[in-house]
């Protein structure tokens, strides 16, 4: 094995991250090549110096207290996940749209046309009113509208505090 090849693999050799056969070739080379052996020893010394220096970095006084305080503040006033509210709002609006399209005169007309064009004979639209009655149907529509409006308002109010999903969760 040539010195150039050994130099390329020295870093991985130092970390014991080479295939066994390749590692053995480098071990053998280092036994008789003083230049490569010096390179390896330099890398070893460098690693030790970095370890020592970084391990000796002093912790800032009071850091733990500040971190805990920020977590406690967060636990009392939790942040809201804006994406969930937006999803909720969109789903609510879609639900409302489907209901309104199903029950409005325009919706009933559209369904009629679709049934004629497609040739479907079933009557999906009158089923729910038949089951719930007029007041029940109106109640469902009112609840859907209130739900959609509430979700939209919350989504808009929380919009400024939302943040992008962090990369480590992707």
């Amino acid at each position: 094995m040539h010195c150039d090849d050994v130099q390329t693999h020295l870093s991985s050799y130092l970390d014991d991250e080479l295939a066994l056969a390749l590692g053995e070739q480098i071990t053998e080379h280092l036994q008789h090549c003083s230049a490569c052996r010096t390179s390896y020893q330099t890398l070893e010394a460098l690693s030790a110096q970095i370890r020592t220096a970084l391990a000796a970095v002093a912790m800032p006084p009071g850091l733990e207290t500040r971190i805990v305080a920020s977590i406690l503040a967060e636990s009392r006033y939790p942040r809201h996940d804006i994406s969930r509210w937006i999803t909720l709002a969109v789903l609510s609006v879609l639900t409302l749209a489907i209901i309104l399209v199903g029950y409005s005169p325009l919706g009933i007309f559209t369904w009629s046309v679709i049934r004629v064009v497609v040739g479907i004979t079933w009557h999906s639209v009158p089923i729910i009113p038949a089951l719930l009655g007029r007041s029940g149907t109106l109640g469902v529509i009112a609840a859907a509208m209130a739900w959609s409006a509430g979700a939209l308002v919350l989504a808009l109010r929380l919009g400024h505090s939302g943040e992008r999903r962090p990369s480590y969760e992707r």
């Binding site: 230049a35 010096t38 390179s39």
Partner: peptide, 11 residues
């Protein structure tokens, strides 16, 4: 960066 001098040369 550390500029550790090395003895000898490579084969």
């Amino acid at each position: 960066a550390f500029a550790v001098p090395e003895e000898g040369g490579l084969n």
